[in-house]
Design a protein around this nucleic acid. Sequence first.
DNA 1: CCAAATCTGATGTACGTAAATCAAAAAATG
DNA 2: CATTTTTTGATTTACGTACATCAGATTTGG
Lengths: 341, 341
Amino acid sequence: MRPTVHDIAAAAGVSLATVDRVLNQRPGVRHVTREKVENAIRDLGYVRDVAAANLAKGRVYPLTFILPASDNSFMHGLNAEIRAAVARSATERTDIHIVEVPAFDSQALVRELETVAAEKPAGVALVATDAPDVRAAVDRLVHDGIPVVTLVSDLTGSLRHHYAGVDNIAAGRTAARLLGRFLGGAKGELAILAGSMLVRDHRERLEGFASVMAQEFPALHLTPVLEGRDDPEVAHMLIADALARNDGIIGIYSLGAGNRGLIRALKEKAVDRPLTVIAHELTAHTRAALLDGTIDAILNQDAGHEVRSAIRVLKAKADGLAVIDAQERIRLDIFLKDNLP
Amino acid sequence: MRPTVHDIAAAAGVSLATVDRVLNQRPGVRHVTREKVENAIRDLGYVRDVAAANLAKGRVYPLTFILPASDNSFMHGLNAEIRAAVARSATERTDIHIVEVPAFDSQALVRELETVAAEKPAGVALVATDAPDVRAAVDRLVHDGIPVVTLVSDLTGSLRHHYAGVDNIAAGRTAARLLGRFLGGAKGELAILAGSMLVRDHRERLEGFASVMAQEFPALHLTPVLEGRDDPEVAHMLIADALARNDGIIGIYSLGAGNRGLIRALKEKAVDRPLTVIAHELTAHTRAALLDGTIDAILNQDAGHEVRSAIRVLKAKADGLAVIDAQERIRLDIFLKDNLP
DNA sequence: CCAAATCTGATGTACGTAAATCAAAAAATG
DNA sequence: CATTTTTTGATTTACGTACATCAGATTTGG
């Protein structure tokens, strides 16, 4: 049987109340006494029964998710996953709030972070916009003792406790190698469609992609990045235009959202020549395109895993508990038409 | 606030004791009364607080894992992950036992299943050997009300509640497409290294591989399967021999274990000609080979996820709770040298 | 050394559920 | 209708922890 507070009290030769004071860092315990208790805790290998503690406290974890108000499939999916978590909140003792802020607007995000901080939640998850003032606002939250995890897009250099998202440099590198290998030594040009170079995850993907391409596939030449603003219409226009004007394009890497437009442009051009295409994020559109051969591979991050992981980590941090690192690593999914879920 | 048993009692106009009888299916409740209570439960949306219930019951989940006594990296890893779960058992209220049975020995497995059944555990996870008597033994366990999940290798047609492992047909298909695309339309022969065609997961991988190859890459010809018995020495011998005798081999699919031998054979032959190689299971050896270019891609199943998932599912089934399907789907990891964890 | 401040113990209640006991009520049986 | 059987209620204890209160002990400071 695992030891309880009673065992600790007995072993340390103190009362239950004193053990409680030590455990919950309440004042009124002399240094020597505190040490006796801490030794007993260590010796007996006591671990607090979190379930019982939560029951006694009637604890719920008020968590806030801050998302950009972007109108694309991925963000919709992320939102849906958070709402699914809300539906589970009764059994998970969470009380989740979702707030949306204008996309790419660091000031709005900072304001929201300050509003949220005032509510003293048990944890905050945010899709970070990469800016110094956001970093500062996040650091302030952390200083106030509020656990913070970044979601999907990280905020390196900040004090956030955890990042629930994929390694985007690795994603870009992987895309490059897949594309390079699929093209099998052919010589030609590559088009790159991004959302915006202002977003960190897109920049990182491009960085990884370009670096592997330069090192290992010198026969492939990268044309200037097309910024589609994650908008299907813009993406369509850019890709159609690029394909019309440049005969040498044999491959495309779409590292952002708005793939609906990309796919439409590809279908219109279908007869012309074979293109090898790699895109990000599995949605209804990209899935269909993968199955019909318009897209050759999809790199994906599982929004459901990211959300569940963020919640687990926030709860653990709020309780000062350890997390299973391997479990919280968000993996880069590579989908071919054969291994779709 | 979520409703409690007290609220149910009040709403149904019965006493706490009666609610308890209904909830825990104890006898002594008239049909009409039972219905009143059940209606109240439904109306108020009552969900039992599992944490409180477990606390009151002092419940622990005695779980048994049955593994084949195979001496390869993957099984060692699986074992290690289960032991890691044992280390967490205090906080997870589990009491996990690991038993090993001779590999590929269905009778031994059946005997063990019967021994285990007698101990009435809260759940059983097993790496299934695909045989009718095993199926029958598993079905008996299920009939006795013991939750069963298959691990790594499934037992289709049995009544097992869940399979914690990858879709091996999809894995084989994925390997085929990767290999086909990497070879970029070249014409030649492929060597296939398996452990044993008696194991279901290996058969399924081959089946998926062969089917995609036949349909989509007719220029690639499959040579007869080499059965390496998951033994590095045997694998080395077989591959070295095949490469020496067949000049036309341009690619290899290793769908089982014993990759240490394969890698050695490949390094010895390195100068001869470039080979495209895809292997299963990420281990120290395959990882090194992927990084140095000996292997081009690794397909992997995350043993840690499989174990944690199996435990979650067994506990949920034991409590009659729902599982989050998406969370329990074991994904096929595809590793290139760029996205290694 | 006394008073004040600080520390410690003893005790009780609470959280939501499980499980047991015993009494009381209702229903079924003859 | 009386008796037996079944069903229901009331109440209590327990699980492991949190938290509050109050009395008593010990340590400080003057």
